[in-house]
Design a protein around this nucleic acid. Structure first.
Lengths: 252, 252
DNA sequence: GCTTGACCCTGACGTAACGGCAGGCGGGAG
DNA sequence: CTCCCGCCTGCCGTTACGTCAGGGTCAAGC
């Protein structure tokens, strides 16, 4: 089977100019030419182009692609395996970026400033792992966030103000309960924990008890969230965490 | 908090030159300068750079990034939401590419040629959906493939030859059973189906009954795989599919 | 107070991977 | 035979930086 530049370009989703370029730099030279000088690509050329496209998508420079494709030590199957592996790595990285964004969203909701490291940790070359799993457990595969996005995108400035007011009002009342000396697993604290859950459900995303306790753990474990609540009243993060857990256990 | 170019560059994982460039084109101009002309970046600048990095990772040209960041209609939270959405789309596309590669690997194992469309379908702008789910069901999240990759990468030319020989031998014997008139759910066919499963387990990846039946379905449903088996003996694809299912039911 | 090495500045040119034309030939459908 | 579309080969333009060159700066140590 022989194909013209135009046909190949259309099939592969590239421009004719790109194929000309690949020919110029000898990355992909058509296996033949017609009598009148037209480029003729065959199936082997297409396979090569397929690999080129995948490696390009993975960010390899053309020169490097030429080198690895012309390396006699690796056959087509080896390239497929390699691409598979690289794609998997890429996907994991993007998933990390997603959880980083989710973190930033949560932080911005509470007006918690991010440190430079936090802003860019996904871009640097630090250690990965375990991180994505954490977030998955916390937010159940970010379904909650998708929901949150849908809703929040419709909010007006006014909505935000009301949200903030409600939030502050809740904070005040919660601090009062703490001051009264009531236990975190008592009815007053639990009622406000429940109110907190419903606040989130109403304004951001459906927040069942498991997710709520996940948030509670984050409020306690993560110093930035901790600091946010501590600023309202010292000891509030831990107290709120306990109240949320108690509330979840008795009501769920 | 104020940072120098070098500090910002290091934190954000870019070069100083890049920051100079962003300053030149007014994409990110530091909020101030020291008395001696040194650039001073503050936290707001970092936030902007954070968005720039995400949009860049998503493939946006700098000019466009400048436009959307300077658009007064969208605040930081809107950018986060947008980036979240775009990243999700990106991840889905890469996952499609992964399954396409897995398909190509399976096809190359059986020497089935791919059509141009098949080679490049993930690059064109066609309809997505449902596709990834399919593959997930078939191969259980590609864990099988990872396993396969690990093993296959250690194979020598000799291994491949022995694999091919075993495979062909199996094909011959299976065709004989068909010719003998034995039913697909009879012991002879089922034994060879089981042998097929163990062949895969031994050479490529641990192949439990569910995955084996998944493969069986693919052999029947996909014309390229069907054609492969039909060439050995007409009717073989369906017959093998039945045998694998019968084997899975009785042995599992 | 002076050196020194790491850091910063502004040009200015280089590069990768094409995009986009111009000017001209080819080819097949009517 | 014509017409339009597809192909050819230059060749210049563009994006997003990389890479010096030549020169000022800052803080630490002697």
């Amino acid at each position: 089977m022989a194909y013209t530049v135009g046909q190949v370009a259309k099939a592969a989703g590239v421009t004719v100019r790109t194929l000309h370029h690949y020919d110029e730099i000898a990355l992909l030279s058509p296996s033949g030419r017609s009598g009148t000088g037209y480029r003729r690509y065959d199936d082997a050329d297409l396979e090569r182009l397929q690999h080129i496209r995948y490696y390009r998508e993975l960010g390899f420079p053309l020169e490097e692609i030429a080198a690895i494709l012309d390396d006699p030590a690796s056959d087509p199957a080896a390239h497929l395996r390699r691409q598979h592996e690289l794609l998997s790595v890429r996907i994991r990285k993007l998933q990390e970026m997603v959880t980083a964004i989710e973190f930033a969203m949560e932080a911005s909701k509470l007006n918690i400033p991010l440190t430079p490291q936090e802003r860019f940790e996904v871009f640097g070359d630090f250690d990965p792992d375990a991180h994505a799993e954490e977030a998955e457990r916390r937010w159940g595969g970010s379904e909650a966030y998708r929901e949150s996005n849908r809703r929040v995108s419709g909010y007006t400035k006014d909505d935000w103000l009301r949200n903030k007011a409600e939030n502050e009002d809740w904070g005040r009342r919660f601090a009062e309960v703490m001051s009264s000396g009531a236990p975190a697993d008592g009815p007053a604290a639990m009622d406000l924990a429940e109110e907190h859950r419903q606040l989130i459900s109403r304004w951001f995303y459906e927040c069942p008890y498991e997710i709520h306790t996940g948030l509670a753990d984050m409020y306690v474990a993560d110093e930035r969230f901790t600091a946010y609540f501590e600023k309202i009243r010292p000891g509030m993060a831990a107290y709120l965490g306990d109240a949320i857990h108690a509330n979840a256990i008795t009501r769920a």
